Simulated assay, not measured.
Amino acid sequence: MKPYTLTIRFRETDEYEAEVGAFMRDLSKHTDKSKNRFIIDLIGDYMKRSEQEQQEKAIIEKLRKMIREELQGFAVANPDSEDKSEMTEDEEAANAASVLDDLELFC
């Protein structure tokens, strides 16, 4: 298989690109890696991180789906019903805030 070659240009007119270009020029001063190995490792780490982020997003979405399914099983209280809760308004607000905090941990 023929090696894949990539040429990178850093525009000196762009402040960010000029800074990155200067870093690459002086790379041997910062690390014992070659520029080639540095770029390959950088791209490889980016690929791994992207894959990990996709897996994490999939897990979070599964958790959200499971929570939604479980919450659908709970009966919604009818505020007009005769069976009034013994909790005060402050207790109800604290309870609702606690439930929301717990849900935010999963989202």
Rank of each mutant, 00 (worst) to 15 (best):
residue 59 I to E: 14
residue 48 K to H: 08
residue 48 K to I: 07
residue 45 D to W: 09
residue 100 L to P: 04
residue 85 S to M: 04
residue 85 S to E: 06
residue 91 E to W: 01
residue 3 P to T: 06
residue 22 A to S: 13
residue 69 E to K: 13
residue 50 S to A: 06
residue 76 V to N: 12
residue 14 D to F: 03
residue 95 N to Q: 09
residue 66 M to V: 14
residue 42 L to I: 04
residue 64 R to L: 09
residue 32 D to M: 07
residue 60 I to E: 12
residue 26 D to H: 06
residue 42 L to H: 10
residue 64 R to Q: 10
residue 53 E to D: 03
residue 13 T to G: 15
residue 103 L to Q: 07
residue 30 H to Q: 12
residue 20 V to Q: 07
residue 49 R to I: 05
residue 44 G to M: 06
residue 96 A to K: 08
residue 21 G to H: 02
residue 41 D to V: 00
residue 14 D to P: 00
residue 54 Q to I: 06
residue 88 T to W: 04
residue 55 Q to A: 15
residue 50 S to G: 10
residue 24 M to N: 01
residue 27 L to R: 03
residue 31 T to H: 02
residue 107 C to I: 14
residue 23 F to R: 07
residue 14 D to T: 03
residue 60 I to D: 09
residue 37 R to F: 01
residue 97 A to E: 14
residue 46 Y to P: 01
residue 67 I to D: 00
residue 63 L to D: 11
residue 100 L to D: 04
residue 13 T to I: 09
residue 68 R to S: 08
residue 65 K to E: 13
residue 86 E to S: 08
residue 6 L to Y: 10
residue 60 I to V: 08
residue 34 S to F: 06
residue 83 D to K: 13
residue 47 M to P: 00
residue 12 E to M: 06
residue 26 D to T: 02
residue 98 S to F: 13
residue 33 K to E: 14
residue 46 Y to L: 09
residue 58 A to Y: 02
residue 50 S to F: 03
residue 82 E to N: 08
residue 3 P to I: 06
residue 78 N to I: 05
residue 34 S to L: 00
residue 80 D to W: 11
residue 29 K to W: 03
residue 31 T to I: 04
residue 87 M to V: 01
residue 47 M to C: 06
residue 68 R to C: 01
residue 79 P to R: 05
residue 81 S to K: 13
residue 16 Y to L: 15
residue 18 A to N: 12
residue 16 Y to K: 11
residue 31 T to N: 09
residue 67 I to Y: 05
residue 91 E to N: 04
residue 30 H to C: 05
residue 105 L to C: 10
residue 5 T to H: 09
residue 65 K to G: 07
residue 28 S to E: 15
residue 11 R to N: 13
residue 22 A to D: 13
residue 103 L to V: 00
residue 66 M to K: 15
